[in-house]
Each structure stands twice: as C-alpha cells, then as structure tokens.
Amino acid sequence: MKKIIAMILMLAIVITGCESKGTKNKTLNIGISQIVEYVALDENREGFIKALEESGYKDGENIKIDYQNAQGDIALSQTIAKKFSSENKDLIFAIGTPSAQSAFNATKKIPIVISSITDPVKAELVKSLEKPETNVSGTSDYLPVERQLDLMKKLLPNAKKIGFIYNTSEVNSEVQLDELKKVAKGYEIIAVGVTNSNEVNSAIVSLLKKIDVLYVPTDQLVVSSMPMIVKNSLQAKVPIIAAEKGSVESGALATVGINYYKLGYETGTMAVSVLKGEDISKMPVKISDNTEVYINEDSLKKLNIEKPLIDNIKYIKTK
C-alpha cells in the first residue's frame, strides 16, 4: 500500500512538473492591429517589436505575432479585432484610435496595449490616464497644439488663416481641432471634414484657396493621403505645418514632433510587464515628452522660405 501511495505521489510530481514546464514554454500569441500603413505607425510597430525582442520575446520562438493592417477601413479593423478576440490572443497591440476602439469593443478580457492615440480618455478606452480601470493601457502621442502654433509663428509670421483637414469620425482630430481653436487667438480657423480618402482631394483643393497655411493633425486617414496633399499645397504655395514627423518626411514644411519608434518601444516595455503578470488596469497611460523640430529642406526651398533662426532643427528631405 505504501508503495502504491509513493508511486501516486511521484506520478503527481512528474505531471505537475510537466505542466509547469509546458506553461513556462508556452508560445504566447500576440495580435497587432494597425489602422493604416504609414511611416509613423510603422515605426511605432517596429519599436514595439524591438522592445519585446530585447526582453526575450522573439517572434517564431516563444511568441507568435499576428500582424494585421486595416488599410484605413474601420469595418476591417473591427473584423480584425473580432478575429483576435475569438482566437483568444494573449495580448493585443492596437496602433491608432480606430484599431484601439475596435479591439476594446471586441474584448474586455484580453489585455490591449495601445499607441499613437491622442486622447485615450475621450476615445473611451480608459477611465483616466493615471488609472485606466479597463483592460487597456499604453502610450499616447499627445502633443500640445500650441507647440505647433509657436513654430508656425516663427516660420510664417504673416499667416492669418489656418486650414485644418480631418476625418469627422476620428476622435483624435476633433480633440486637436478644439485645442487649435482655443489657442490660435487672432487667427481664422477654416476646418474641412472628410469621411473617407476619396473626399480628400476635392476637399484640399477647395481649402487651399481660402488659407495661408494648412495644419495637418495626427489623423490616420488624412496622413495616409499626404503625398497628394503635399503636391496640391506646394502648387498653391501654401505651407503645411504637421503634427508629426512622418508628414514632414512626406513633404509638409515642419513640425515639433515626437519619435514614434521610441514611443512604440516604450509601449513594448509595458507589454512585457503585462505578459509577466502586471495588472494592465492599474498601469498609467504614458505620454512622450521627447520632441524635436523637423523641417523639410526641399519644401522650404520650393516655398521660398528662408531657414529660420531656431536651435536644434533637424532638416530632412522628402522621401
């Protein structure tokens, strides 16, 4: 009888050990949902994956990354989110507000880390930046519009009419438009809303006839149309002040921008903490404070604008 009990105990230990080993060596499934293919968002994703790798989480080894791009289609982003939810991913990384909202609507259980989102609270993803109280946390690309306005004043002192083009269903853009209206005292703000990429061309052609400078927010639908917007703006000799570096690389004149690769990396370190068991509902949303002034040298010349006397400018050329 004692031998039987001993054998049972040994078997239990072996089984428990195997289960622990199996759990330890389990391949984690991570879904990445990106709203559109765009340089800033791509850098965001690359930084995220790099942070995972440097923490020992490598795709094809102990994690499996399922990257999906909605190509600007909200319905497709919702389909992607439902797919990730049904597959019970261990973690979802949502890049851009529409992707984040789709993921949050699809699941309240799977941890969702977010990035490239201006206002997670207004997007109803978290209760507060300090304490999300949901299955969502991550990083925000919020940058006070006033910083861009100060740069515009230095580069374009005679500008009086500011154009603003945005996607009417993009919460980020509404936040930036409201802020611009509050801080741009003495300027006339002429805003034009669009609902899809097919409307951008006619909207921008009409808007350029009425303004001195165009402001482009961190709006995924709009920035994905930057080559066309830049072409029309340069022809009309209307400078573009952008909200992020990627737009300047596409031909916008200038921005005070954050580094989206670093932002993604920071999000990746947060994801690692979640994968190791930290409660995402208690993780504060982080806002980047590392900014630099970027000016497109090609656009500067085409617009016949002299190089400004501003410290620490990074001149870049159109890609």
Rank of each mutant, 00 (worst) to 15 (best):
M1R: 14
K2Y: 07
T16L: 12
G17C: 12
K21D: 08
T23H: 02
K24A: 15
N25F: 11
L28S: 06
I49C: 10
A51M: 09
E53A: 14
E54P: 07
S55E: 14
D59S: 10
E61S: 14
D66G: 04
Y67R: 03
Q68Y: 05
I80D: 07
K82D: 11
S86V: 14
A100Q: 03
A100N: 03
K108D: 12
P111K: 07
V113Y: 04
I114W: 04
D119Y: 03
A123V: 04
T139K: 06
Y142E: 00
V145C: 01
L151H: 07
M152G: 05
G163W: 03
I165A: 08
E170R: 00
S173C: 08
V175P: 02
L180P: 00
L180E: 06
K182E: 14
K185R: 12
G193K: 09
K209P: 00
K210S: 06
V213L: 12
M226I: 02
N232Q: 13
N232D: 10
P239N: 04
I241C: 14
K245E: 14
G246S: 14
Y260F: 15
Y260I: 11
K262I: 06
T269S: 12
V274L: 02
D279F: 00
I287K: 08
D289W: 00
I295W: 04
E297C: 01
I310A: 09
I313A: 09
Y315A: 05
K319M: 10
